[in-house]
């Protein structure tokens, strides 16, 4: 083993990251433009904000470690294609945009039961700070408790604490079999209760869609179990979204147990991820207020990370 060859490169040694930090600079309002798929989330960007682009490309992909190091500006679709070649995938949702965008938005796919959540997928994050430095948090291995968890803090931060330049993501093996089934007469909660590990249970108030994944004999066995809950038939998913139903545009985040009360009166037409609590709906979720003491911590965080408020001005993850 040549120690020299494997010494972890400090972020500061990477010219691409250094160039990005320089572009972010030290003053004036600035934001990263990704795929603009969730551009208005958490508020409109303040007028006059300069936009920069994050670096692109896969830096290192080690399928045997189940990790990938990828620049934030890389399209999610490119990452997906590269991983698929080696029979793997990540938790990032399939709806276009860039890797960095998906991380700072932090929204999981409706198949989060099977894919995992974005919050659990980011092992290391490297970002340009408000004072134009490259900062790293987390580490390259799948297990790590060295220092505070900056990756989790940055996931869902809407770029208000740092502009993400590069991440290391956990990858997962693609299951040997993925099978969507649909029924018009099934109680979705019964589906969640009866199956061991469905990858998704979607419900629009009438129809229930179930994604079974794993070894073929297990998927077959779970399909037989499902027959006791409703008249399920196989159904194709849309290759673009990975799901068999069109998803409404607005996201609601509810306790999984609260989905029983869902009747569309507040949400309009909806598709709910049962067992997760995510609801995609015609109408937006009413604003959720942070408790004052929690808001105070959030304000101090913003103040400590970005004292002049130059990163993504106008956006606030509490207003999503």
């Amino acid at each position: 083993m040549t120690a020299e060859a494997t010494v972890p490169t400090l972020a500061t040694d990477d010219p691409v990251l250094a160039a990005f930090a320089e572009e972010v600079g030290v003053d004036g309002p600035v934001a990263v433009e990704g795929g603009r798929t969730r551009w208005s989330l958490g508020g409109e960007l303040a007028p006059g904000t300069r936009t920069v682009r994050a670096p692109t490309g896969i830096v290192a992909y080690t399928p045997d470690e189940m990790t990938v190091t990828v620049r934030a500006g890389t399209p999610v679709a490119d990452l997906r294609a590269a991983l698929a070649e080696r029979g793997q995938r990540t938790a990032l949702p399939e709806r276009g945009g860039t890797v960095g965008g998906a991380v700072v938005v932090g929204e999981s796919d409706v198949r989060a039961l099977g894919l995992g959540s974005v919050r659990n997928a980011v092992l290391q994050v490297r970002y340009a700070s408000a004072d134009g430095r490259i900062v790293s948090g987390g580490g390259p291995t799948v297990k790590n408790v060295s220092g505070f968890d900056l990756p989790r803090l940055l996931v869902g931060s809407l770029g208000t604490l740092g502009l993400v330049a590069e991440v290391i993501l956990r990858t997962n093996p693609m299951p040997p079999v993925s099978r969507w089934l649909r029924a018009g007469d099934a109680d979705p909660q019964a589906v969640v209760d009866r199956l061991l590990d469905p990858s998704a249970v979607l419900w629009d108030g009438t129809t229930t869609w179930v994604l079974l994944e794993g070894h073929e004999p297990d998927v077959d066995a779970e399909q037989i179990t499902l027959a006791g809950v409703g008249s399920f038939v196989p159904v194709d998913s849309d290759p673009a979204t990975g799901v068999p139903v069109a998803l409404p545009p607005n996201r609601w985040s509810l306790a999984p147990g609260d989905l029983v009360d869902l009747d569309g009166s507040a949400t309009g037409a909806f598709v709910a991820a049962v067992g997760v609590g995510l609801v995609l709906a015609e109408r937006p979720q009413p604003p959720r207020r942070l408790a004052p003491a929690v808001a105070a911590v959030a304000e101090r965080l913003k103040q400590n990370f970005d004292p002049t408020g130059r990163l993504n001005p106008g956006r606030n993850p509490a207003d999503r």
Binding site: V155, S253, A255, R289, A293, A318
Partner: peptide, 23 residues
């Protein structure tokens, strides 16, 4: 102050302070 960080819903509003707190 007594606060609750995170929640039973999958994507609570605001920074993931629960995530920062664990560990």
């Amino acid at each position: 102050e007594l606060v609750t960080l995170g929640g039973l819903d999958p994507e609570p509003a605001g920074y993931d302070l629960r995530g920062a707190f664990v560990g």
